[in-house]
Design a protein around this nucleic acid. Structure first.
Lengths: 229, 229, 229, 229
DNA sequence: AATGAATGAGCCTTCATTCAT
DNA sequence: AATGAATGAAGGCTCATTCAT
């Protein structure tokens, strides 16, 4: 059974197992043994590779952030206009791979971890700061001419609103037992952005995308992203 | 030391201590001893009054729901128009007493608890269902004439958007170390509702409230309510 | 509810409750609170009257010994012949009041307690020594003339055999769920004594009593003792 | 320190330690820690191997039953006549390995456990039923021709008498502090069986064995078996 | 007389972690 | 590389006992 040179796979397996088990249980209060078993190895080996439970958790967190960053970057690179960049952030947030029950629960768990763990807070802060500055920047380009501090404030408000909405859509999944519906979440975000921009006289054109997506079956993973591009 | 008739105070003290300690720690994985100490008693007494850790937690959850329900009901009773009802829900959500770091963290912890605990999920679901039906109802009265299913759908979308935004604003507090700013959150919600309604041709008049509140120092507890009424 | 001057009744109630609860549970590992509740009072009061759990237990033990001694003495006073004295011991051992499931279990529990508690051992030893000397004496009077040490040895053997048999019949009740049958136990003992004496050429006449008792319904408490006298 | 393949020895050590500690203390109310220490390991390891205190206790009980069964079967296989089978049961019951203070106390503790624990009761019942049917069968073969139900009843009575006597001899050990004398117990049983059989006209020949054993020093383990074979 | 209030001590159990193999 | 063996520390919970009322 012991394959040699398997360290990277072992680590990856453990991280995925950690997401599963933590997500399933809705807390970090999970035996390392449970994670190791889910990954098909002994807990001693998990310690061998990571050094401790904290490290497993931090690495898992890093992994989730990296994954989400990856989706985000990919979307942003394809985007040509500010609206497309905003829409990219929205779509990346609800990519099927990240928007399933267990992963969402793991996210929330890490969010909470940040309450009592400064390092965890730092990791999340860095990530969200980058995300937010991206959004602020995009919104700003869309706003009509105005004194700098005014348009800055408006852009921040819009970005904060969108960011909070995304987070809220994540947490809301905690209450349902069914698998979350990414497409519905995307549309909701688009609608809010569209409304927010319209309020200050900017036509986003996102309404068209919503309608396009509604014509498709709202099944995850297939149509959603595809139908949009 | 043993006073008589102490049970109610002791229970209340333990519940408040539980919110504190759980909120501080960002998880339910907290020694009962820590809660009891925070409440100024031995852990044995906590067990005496509650029977077990689970009961402490469930009662604490119930307490938070009751408190929030209370604020909500109070606001709704004062509201005369649909817009005021929506605004009441918003204001109640960010009432100073509930929107402080520890209470917020406790809320999120319970949200997560619902992931693995059906009873917890049930409690939350009941509460949120009631909240949402209130919002849906209010939005519906604001919508222009339209076939029933269309206006129903629109109202649901608006209610979901607002609900998610509120939750998102809660969770976002996890990242900052400063005390959350309820007024800012209220304004953000109002702005979104205003924009969302405007989008479908309804003028909410919430903008006026935002401006009114902005003129006041955004101190919690003083201006907020005052500026609104 | 608090009647005054009730100390003796309270103590008696606690002792009976202790027999019940200890017998029911088959061990001394029983909360004082359970005993007190069974006796209809708070555990604090039990401590007030007895000073501690150990005292409750010792007093309960003493009570059982006293009860059994009482039956024994009553039987022995009625006995005119050595055989009747032996038979009295047998009958007293299986008097309905002492030979019910809970009391038996309590007895065994105390027997075991003697393993680790010298005071308990002392109490039991005193009692059994007296019982045994009574039996030895009776047997000795029945034995035919023989050198002192021979007849002494034989009497001791017979007494030990009967004593062990009685104890064995007690413990055997532990396995059945039905209420123990005192009459059957009495007959078994009589039969053994009769056989043991016959072996050394003494006719006890106990066989007649066995037959007499067999003609009666072997119901506890009614016929058994009555039919014999 | 961790040797590999240690599980069987550890389990065995724990079971023996359990007999010791439970026997010493005369109750099941014994810290697992005490058992584990007696077995030379931490309590955590005891839990690791047995899963819980209950399992330790049940396994210990099973072990005692197995041991006693073993002695019994060995004796019965050597026996050629009914009298030898009866004597085998007697001798097996007082085999030195089983008839020492601690083991006896452990036995009684389990007897009591059966009072409140149906599974424990089941284990004991199965064992004793088998033992008794063996005795009944042997006695029956010794009885003179008689109507079936009469000889059946007589055999049952003799078997019950012997069974109860054995149990009684066990429990009587609780009162003395010295090590129990197996040979004396064996002789007492033999004498009773001999007398009981003689009563109904059957000569057992056990008297000869008693005398043979009396000539030997009544040391445990030496004479007993020797004088018999 | 009687009880609820209150706690320290102890037990069962789990778990992160280390180590020898 | 991989694991079973092993344990210290900690947490939930119970209970005997004391005390103020």
């Amino acid at each position: 059974m012991p394959r040699i040179g398997a360290e990277p796979e072992r680590r990856k397996a453990l991280i995925h197992a950690a997401i599963d088990v933590i997500g399933e249980h809705g807390s970090l209060d999970v035996p390392v043994k449970a994670i190791a078993e889910q990954a098909g190895m002994s807990s001693a080996l998990a310690f061998h590779y990571f050094g401790g439970k904290d490290e497993i958790i931090v690495e898992t967190m890093r992994y989730l952030l990296r994954e989400l960053s990856g989706s985000m970057i990919a979307e942003l690179q394809l985007a040509k206009t500010p609206v497309e960049r905003i829409d990219g952030v929205i779509r990346a947030s609800f990519t099927p791979g990240q928007f399933d029950r267990k992963t969402i629960a793991a996210w929330l768990v890490f969010y909470l971890k940040a309450y009592s763990s400064p390092p965890a807070a730092r990791l999340l802060t860095i990530y969200f700061r980058r995300l937010e500055s991206n959004l602020i920047d995009a919104f700003r380009q869309l706003l009509p001419a105005a004194p700098d501090d005014v348009s800055k404030r408006q852009a921040v408000e819009l970005a904060e609103g969108l960011g909070a909405l995304i987070d809220g859509l994540y947490i809301r999944q905690a209450l349902g037992t069914r698998e979350p519906d990414g497409q519905k979440a995307i549309d909701l975000c688009r609608r809010q952005v569209d409304a927010g921009l319209a309020r200050i006289g900017v036509e986003s054109g996102l309404a068209a995308k919503i309608e396009a997506s509604s014509l498709q079956p709202s099944r995850q993973g297939s149509s959603a992203a595809g139908g949009v591009h």
